[in-house]
Every structure is written in structure tokens, then in C-alpha cells.
Amino acid sequence: MVRPARDVFHWQPFSRISMGPLGIAKKFFLWVDEVGGFLVCPQPTVTVGHLDSSEADVALSGDLESRHLTLMREDDLYVLEAHGPVYLNGRPVQRSILPERCALELGNCVRLQFLRPHPLSASARLEFASGHRTVPSTDGVLLMARNLILGPQPTAHVVCHHWQEPITLYWTGDALRCRGSGLLTVDGKAVRGEATLSLSSHVEGARWRFHLEPA
């Protein structure tokens, strides 16, 4: 039997950012130069629905219910709960634990790929397999647990082929931090190794750059 998702996070709110019930940022955008843009959802429960829905954390264009699908992260598992027609690898489902890689079809047209790329991270990625997108348009959705890895490795949550070294975004206490191996420039200031970020920070390295934006 699938256990209900537990509230395993206890972070405090960031100022000026929309907060979920656990005190962490409900969602924000990650824009990576020469790679793409991603909607980041750190909450352990994320709803997917119609573009005009105020109930959906991930609102997509397409013929969907206002709350079509809920994804719940419980420890290192993801549990799917369908509120509208959902197909998991071609089979209709109402509730299911997701495998580490699978295809999801919502309604008759919206197709997503679910992927857990890193074996030591509970964070996951939703890729758009059909032409449906968020607004503003992004290249995917990152379901962020403790950390996100950006880098050239295929196990990164955001694969950045031209980067030389990985960068990790991670939560510690009530702060979102960034860790790299060399000199970083964060909001115009040079730092070495690690830095605390706001959800509007600009971060640069020798040959790469990304910034965050509240959703």
C-alpha cells in the first residue's frame, strides 16, 4: 500500500517569494544561458493542470482538467495520483509509484517524460514530449528535492554540454545555495566555492551563466 506523502521539509520563507505550506519557495524559474529555461518546483506535492487554472503548480497549454495530475515525493519515491485521464507507459492509471524513467500522457494530447537522472538525488525532471509548454515557455520542469545538479554529465538534472565542471544548487536550513569548484560571480561579487542565492540571483563562471527568477 502506498503511504501518504509526509512533510519532511521545514525551511523558513524567503521574503517577497510565493511560499508553499512548508515554508519554502513554491516555484521559481531557472534560466541557463545557451541551454534553456526550467520551472523549478521544490514542494514535495506538485499539481499539473490547465493553463488557466489557479490550482495548478505546473499549468500547461492543452485540453486538461484544472487539476489533472498530482505528483507526490515521499522520501526517494514519486507517487502519481490522477484526477483526469492519465496513461503511464500507455496504460491508464489512477494512482501509481513512478519508475525512474517513464512516459506520461495526460488527456488525449499532452505527453511528458518523467526522469530521475541522478542515482543519489531524489530530484526529477519532467520533459515535454508534445508541443505543450508552460507560460512563459520553458524546456522542462524540475522537481527539486534537496539539490539540483547542472553540468556536462548525462546524470545532471540540467545537462549543459559545453560546461567543464558541474554546479550544484541545494537547500541548507532556510537558504538556497550554489556550490562549484572554482571562482564564481554571484550578483556582481566574486566568491570562491559556495554562495547563498536569492531567487533573483545572477551567477557566472568562466564559460557559463545562469539566473533565477520568481515565478
Results as ranks from 00 to 15, higher is better:
90 G>R: 07
101 R>L: 15
117 P>Y: 14
104 L>T: 04
100 E>M: 14
96 S>V: 13
58 V>D: 00
69 L>D: 00
40 V>H: 02
76 D>H: 15
112 L>C: 08
107 G>D: 02
88 L>F: 02
39 L>F: 07
121 S>F: 10
58 V>L: 08
56 A>W: 02
77 L>T: 09
37 G>W: 11
97 I>F: 12
59 A>R: 06
85 P>S: 12
85 P>L: 12
115 L>I: 14
69 L>I: 03
73 R>M: 08
58 V>I: 12
98 L>M: 09
37 G>R: 15
51 L>W: 07
42 P>E: 01
100 E>R: 15
64 L>S: 02
97 I>D: 01
80 L>S: 01
57 D>I: 10
72 M>Q: 11
107 G>V: 07
104 L>A: 06
80 L>W: 01
108 N>T: 10
113 Q>K: 14
42 P>G: 02
110 V>C: 07
72 M>C: 13
46 V>N: 03
68 H>A: 09
66 S>W: 13
49 G>C: 07
55 E>Q: 11
48 V>I: 15
103 A>F: 08
123 S>V: 08
124 A>L: 12
62 G>N: 06
62 G>L: 10
100 E>A: 15
49 G>V: 12
115 L>C: 14
52 D>L: 15
80 L>R: 00
59 A>H: 01
62 G>M: 04
88 L>C: 04
74 E>Y: 09
103 A>W: 09
116 R>Y: 01
83 H>F: 15
89 N>P: 01
93 V>N: 06
102 C>F: 03
97 I>A: 14
82 A>D: 00
41 C>H: 02
72 M>L: 12
52 D>I: 13
89 N>G: 07
88 L>T: 03
107 G>H: 05
74 E>K: 12
106 L>W: 08
109 C>W: 04
69 L>T: 01
41 C>Q: 04
66 S>A: 14
48 V>M: 11
62 G>H: 02
104 L>M: 04
87 Y>V: 06
90 G>Q: 05
